[in-house]
Nucleic acid binder design. Structure first.
Lengths: 236, 236
DNA sequence: GTCGTAATATTTGGATCCAAATGACACTAG
DNA sequence: CTAGTGTCATTTGGATCCAAATATTACGAC
């Protein structure tokens, strides 16, 4: 039996592709599939399989893979194929240190400009997080909550880096939350942070954010040291 | 006469390319040519020309261009071709604001770990800058000086973002220094900053850095408002 | 039975060919 | 003389074909 474990089923492609924008469609489809976790990190992507799936030749697939490689979503080794890039591992501490720096500034810029609308949006995400048990949704909601707080920061470049970091964390959480044991994250951090933000108390908000992220990095590094994580992150 | 203004001469290619790593060679060659200014922003890159130049088919060229596009060094519009990406423009303020954030942290992390060797290296760059009149070299030396001060920061991710910012500035300086009127930058800022760094006076070092970068953004925004800059940055 | 080697199969990378789209130019009409 | 339109040339995007490299598997020797 050629029973190959290909999680490509999750990638749906509706109808034939308009032919002359095949590459961009493929790139976008793959990117979102990687970011939202339908393609877990470590899965190998065969050019021919993708070509068949999209109903095109290997050519546009190749170019799409190259672009995703340049964006560090894939790691391609010559003649060996494209593999969905691994997530934070040893550099978890560095990653979170950088996030604290970037997100603190984003929050500082954003807080004075946030309106009632964003406050309620963020509160809504917390409620959803409280009720949610689906790991995929938890990662997504967590990202949306944070972005809601930063969204008004005027510096678009900063905001994009912040978003990159959150996307990376989302991928990581989606993939590891279950293995990490903690089924549901307590929303205490989030509630306290939102309260400080609503009161426009910038120093306290930043303090909360830093604590929150530090707690995150602590949980993750502890988890990464466990045998379960070792196994999960090697040999792929 | 087919007198086409192609600055491709500056790209040298020694001997035939090893055939199976054509793409990576082309990508690297083009990247460095763009970063160090041999391909000024705005130049159009024809696939066939590049293929002829490197002595290969258009195929590896296409993939290399795609990767550079994903890295935002090129902007490719379908059926119109690849153009070397424009530089900081309206968002100069944002760019420098972000740089202050990132480089301050890098400097804070690096200062305690710097040794005599780096101090002397940085001092050497200042001396070279003082003597140098070649705009290309000025941009390069400026980048090397800054990186010398940050180089010991343990956070590699942070350091990479810092390096991206410095590369962008270098491209900008190389292309605009002459037009900006200021033939040679005064090295007072650099000297004062280095002195503070050597004394391991972190608060003063950061203060100097912030001032230095703010002066930079001021000069640039003032320049960008001039008609000369307008002309230089439109219609290419 | 296990390890090492050789042959095969799979997969990626490059070349060539063809189609579609955009830009330039010339020709015509007003 | 100018504006508009139609044709042609240039250039990119996709498909197909071929070669090189690596992984896999089978076979044989110890």
């Amino acid at each position: 039996m050629t029973q190959k474990p290909k999680p490509l089923h999750s990638i749906k492609v509706e109808g034939p592709i308009p032919a002359h924008l095949a590459r961009s469609v493929i790139e976008e489809t793959l990117r979102s599939a990687i970011l939202d976790g339908r393609l877990p990190c470590g899965t190998a992507l065969r050019q021919q399989d993708l070509a068949d799936l999209f109903g095109v030749s290997r050519m546009p697939v190749r170019e799409a893979l190259r672009q995703l490689e340049a964006q560090e979503l894939l790691s391609v080794t010559t003649h060996k194929g494209a593999v969905v890039a691994p997530l934070i591992q040893g550099d978890a501490a560095e990653t979170y240190e950088l996030r604290i720096l970037l997100e603190s500034e984003a929050m500082r810029q954003s807080i004075p400009l946030l309106t009632e609308a964003e406050h309620q949006l963020a509160a809504g995400y917390i409620d959803e997080l409280e009720a949610q048990h689906d790991y995929n949704e938890i990662g997504r909601l967590n990202r949306l909550f944070h972005m809601a707080l930063y969204s008004k920061a005027p510096n678009q470049r900063l905001l994009r880096l912040v978003e990159d970091g959150l996307n990376e964390e989302e991928r990581f959480l989606r993939f590891n939350l279950e293995a990490m044991g903690l089924g549901k994250l307590s929303q205490d951090d989030h509630r306290a942070m939102l309260q400080a933000v609503i009161e426009r108390d910038i120093p306290r908000s930043l303090e909360m954010l830093e604590q929150h992220l530090n707690r995150g990095v602590e949980v993750i590094t502890r988890y990464l040291a466990t045998p379960a994580a070792q196994k999960r992150h090697t040999a792929r």
